Simulated assay, not measured.
Amino acid sequence: MIVDSHCHLDFPDFANDLDGIVDRARAQGVGRIVTISTRARELPKLLAIAERFDAVFCSVGTHPHNAHEELDIGTVDLVAKTAHPKVVAIGEAGLDYFYDTSPRDAQEQGFRAHIAAARETGLPLVIHARNADDDMARILEEETGKGAFPAVLHCFTGGRDLAMRAIALGLSISFTGILTFKTSNALRAIAAELPADRILVETDSPYLAPGKFRGKRNEPSYVVETAKVLAETRGVSFDEIANQTTENFFRLFSKVPRQLSAAA
């Protein structure tokens, strides 16, 4: 089995193809899919998808692009929304200084509220970090000082310093199709260096299709291509990477069942 730990099945790109997407993922050995929230208010949309497929789960949270729109949804509200058995993570939340579509103070406020929710529930925080390495490291270190929380830096594209500081705090790091791009030598060097028990793979679909499918709509079945490059980068077999990243996933996303019903 392999896992797509981060995609966005509620996005319009997938609206007319959900059954096909899940079937193709299953055919490629993708045994679990987590569809990630970008607006906490839209959790019902994600739950409708997650409840439709045994192998699909979801998170609840507010993307930094939307932080200023959902500052009224604080830690208490986030925690309450995790009661549903299909909600297995908090986020994605964090900092995005590339687009800066939300004021930076709003991004930080929202991020800290999500961290507190992860700390309280024990559910993993899915962290978005883009062009914000210094502030991200600062906040993670400050918040860890208040109490540890499980988390993953998703779609990692930051520098080595952020990666190693995150690892030192106990976080995991997840890679997308960006790892497969010809220009991603520095990212592959980081991926080769990380501890084996802290790495995950994801698609972030419908975006960031791996090299083999570059320019096409990404989908969960393509996570296999990223895993192949991660295996090559680390000098191990595909089966070893699949097994390791899947075990890492279940350990971090501990609310996701290891066994599904016979109909799954």
Score class of each variant (00 low, 15 high):
I173K: 03
K146H: 15
I178N: 08
R52F: 12
H114E: 11
V201N: 03
C7G: 03
A80D: 13
A242S: 13
V236M: 06
A191V: 06
V229W: 10
A137V: 12
L123H: 07
G94W: 01
L18S: 07
A166Y: 02
A117L: 02
D13E: 15
T157V: 13
H128F: 09
D197E: 15
Q244G: 00
A118R: 01
E219G: 01
L252D: 00
G159C: 06
S172E: 09
A67K: 06
A262D: 15
P210H: 10
S237P: 06
L179M: 11
N16M: 09
R112N: 08
I21M: 05
G110F: 03
D19F: 01
V201C: 14
K212D: 12
K81E: 11
T144S: 13
D13S: 12
V236L: 01
R26C: 11
G29I: 12
V3W: 08
A116I: 04
G145N: 01
K45Y: 07
F181R: 05
T226D: 02
R130H: 08
L179P: 09
A89R: 02
R251A: 14
A192S: 15
E219I: 03
L123C: 08
C7E: 01
R112C: 13
D96R: 00
T203Q: 03
F181C: 07
V152H: 09
A25K: 10
E108H: 00
D17M: 09
Q109C: 09
S172P: 00
H154V: 04
I241H: 03
I2K: 02
E141S: 12
K228Y: 08
Y97E: 04
G158E: 13
V34L: 14
T233W: 10
D23I: 08
G159W: 05
D96H: 00
E51C: 10
V88A: 02
D13L: 09
R39C: 11
T180H: 12
A55R: 15
F249E: 02
A148D: 11
E92R: 09
E42A: 14
R32F: 06
R198P: 03
Y97G: 07
L171M: 15
K228Q: 13
A148F: 14
Y222S: 07
N131Y: 05
M1S: 14
L208G: 00
L169G: 07
F98R: 05
R52T: 14
N131V: 05
D105W: 04
P85R: 08
F111L: 07
G31Q: 14
L179E: 11
A27V: 10
M1R: 10
M164Q: 14
G74Q: 12
F213N: 13
V229R: 12
A48D: 14
E247H: 04
A264Q: 10
V152K: 09
E69W: 04
D10Q: 10
R130L: 08
L95P: 07
L179F: 12
T183M: 05
V56T: 07
R119M: 09
R234N: 01
I36R: 04
Q259A: 12
R160T: 13
S172W: 13
M164F: 15
I49D: 07
F53K: 02
A67R: 07
D23T: 14
V3E: 04
A55Q: 14
H114M: 10
N243T: 14
N66V: 00
S172R: 13
N185Y: 02
E202L: 09
R251T: 15
G20W: 05
R214I: 11
S102V: 04
D105L: 05
E92D: 09
I167W: 07
D105Q: 08
K146S: 12
V60L: 02
A137K: 03
A67G: 11
A166I: 03
